[in-house]
Each structure stands twice: as structure tokens, then as C-alpha cells.
Simulated assay, not measured.
Amino acid sequence: MTANLREIKVFTTFPHRCSYLPEKEATTLFVDPRQTISPELYTELSLMGFRRSGDHIYRPHCNNCSACVAARVVTSGFKPSKSQRRVINANGDLRLEITDSVSGDDEAYALYERYITGKHADGDMYPPDREQYESFLNNSLGSTRYFKLYENNTLVCVAVSDEMLDGFAAIYTFYDPNLEKRSLGTYAVLLQISHAKKRGMPYIYLGYWIENCQKMSYKTRFQPLEMLIQGRWYGDTGDKPSDLSPIPVVTLPSDL
């Protein structure tokens, strides 16, 4: 880690209801939004388990809970499973376009609206709002890439991913809720893994895995998987997240 990490100012939220485990109370640690975030610093923050939402970089900082575990796929060792190969084959007809922005893209926002309304009407992002959408998916770092998939000439999926020095961070994916059979969420992760491998990037950061949260369970289907536990990255050596072995230490700054 570079010395300047120790100089970063951070803030914590007041305790609030956890959006993943409703019976739990959560606290979030935010990097000062006035902090200049270089690609190098963003990468190092990701190594310490931070994530981005809009212009905010954060990680869980709960006193009595450590359920949120940062997870990343090791691209060099990844081989798609039989079911993942079926997903790849099923979507071979889609056209991929990678862009640096979806700001002002009415087709992308219309797809986002359909996705939130059709899949997450009981969630925090319902009802969909254009301003919230823009602030959530675009950022001022200049690192975001949008993997846009088209069926013929119709946009059916957008995977939002941040490019760092050591790989990509999968931020969010939204797709046509009427195309469930395509498994576009899985395909979006597979695309990012494939793109990172071609670029020689070692990791895809998948955000937080939570053992008792069903909607997070899909992350363990991408192997080999590494998890950040008490400041150290551990490699998954078996078929379940409990089969972990230590890999080189990532030291956390003493003031975080």
C-alpha cells in the first residue's frame, strides 16, 4: 500500500437498517468525496474492499457484523461451467458494444426503467428516477465502461463496470426482464471476465458476498473466487466459500 492511503479522510454513517439482512443494523464507511481518486488509488481502495456507487466510494463498517465479504474472480484460472457454457451459447447472437457513457441515452434509461419495475419493485430504487439513475451509474472518475448487448438493433442488457489497474469492478447490470431464459445477468459477468482476460487483467471484483443472502449466492458460481476476510485475501480451494486458503496479505491502514 502507498503511504497516501493513511492520509485519506473517511466518514461513517449513522447506523441504519441493512438492505441485505433486514434484521441487522449497518454502518457504512465513505471516502471523503473531495478526495482526488486516481486509477492507482481506486485500485488500492478496491484491494481493501471498497466499492463505488455514483461518486461515492464506500465499504461496510459495522460494529457487530462482518457478513459482507468482498469477492473477486481470478480471471486466469476461470473456466466456465457446463451451465455457463450453455449461457454463452444461448447468447451468441447478441451484439456487444462497449461505451464510456450512458448519459443522455434514452434507450438505456428505458431499459433500466423496465428492469427496476419488473424485477425490483420492492427495492430501494423503485420507482425508477432519471436523476438517480444518472448519479448512480455515471461517475467523475472516467473509469466506467458500459457493456451494451443488442438483440438485432434492440438494447437488451447493460453491464456497468469500472476499469482499474488490476481488473474490472462489476458495478451493476440491468436487462430486459422479459428475457429471463437468456440469463443475461450471468452472461454479463462472463463477458467482463472474458474482456479482462483478453486485456491481461487478473481480477473481476463482484462486490460483497453474504452467506445468508440468497441474491448474493450467484457469486460463488464463478470460480476461482477470492474473498477478503479481516484484511487478507483468501483463495477458494473447494466447492463452497468455507474452503479457503490464505494468499499474500493486504495490510489495512491503521486508521480505517
Rank of each mutant, 00 (worst) to 15 (best):
T12D: 11
P241C: 07
L29F: 07
P177A: 10
D106A: 10
Y58C: 09
I204M: 09
A188S: 15
I171K: 06
P22L: 04
Y133V: 03
R199Y: 05
D129W: 04
A159P: 05
I229L: 12
M48N: 04
D55W: 02
P224M: 02
N152A: 12
D55I: 02
S103V: 10
R86F: 08
V10K: 12
V250C: 11
H56F: 05
D236L: 12
Y205E: 12
L137E: 03
F78Y: 13
D162T: 05
V10R: 15
Y146M: 04
L111Y: 10
A70C: 12
T13V: 13
L29K: 11
R199L: 12
K219Q: 08
C18F: 02
S135K: 14
N139T: 00
S183K: 04
G92K: 14
R6F: 08
S66T: 14
S143T: 14
L96N: 07
Y218H: 03
S217N: 13
L149W: 04
S254E: 11
E113R: 14
D243G: 01
K9E: 13
K181M: 02
S140N: 14
Y234I: 03
T99I: 08
P202R: 08
Y20P: 00
C213K: 00
G207I: 09
F30Q: 06
D122E: 11
N91H: 13
G167R: 08
G142Q: 04
R6I: 03
T2I: 12
S101N: 09
N138G: 03
D162H: 02
L94H: 15
T12C: 13
K79D: 06
V158F: 10
K240Q: 09
S140Y: 06
H56T: 06
N139K: 00
A110E: 13
L96C: 10
V102S: 01
G123K: 01
A3Q: 13
C213L: 00
S83T: 05
F168Q: 02
E180Q: 14
M125E: 07
L179V: 02
S143G: 09
P224A: 04
K9H: 11
D55Y: 01
E163T: 12
H61N: 14
S183R: 01
L137K: 03
P80L: 07
R85H: 07
G185R: 01
H120L: 03
I193K: 02
Y187T: 00
V73F: 03
S217H: 13
E25L: 09
E163Q: 15
H56V: 00
V156S: 11
I193S: 02
R34E: 15
S254D: 10
Q214I: 00
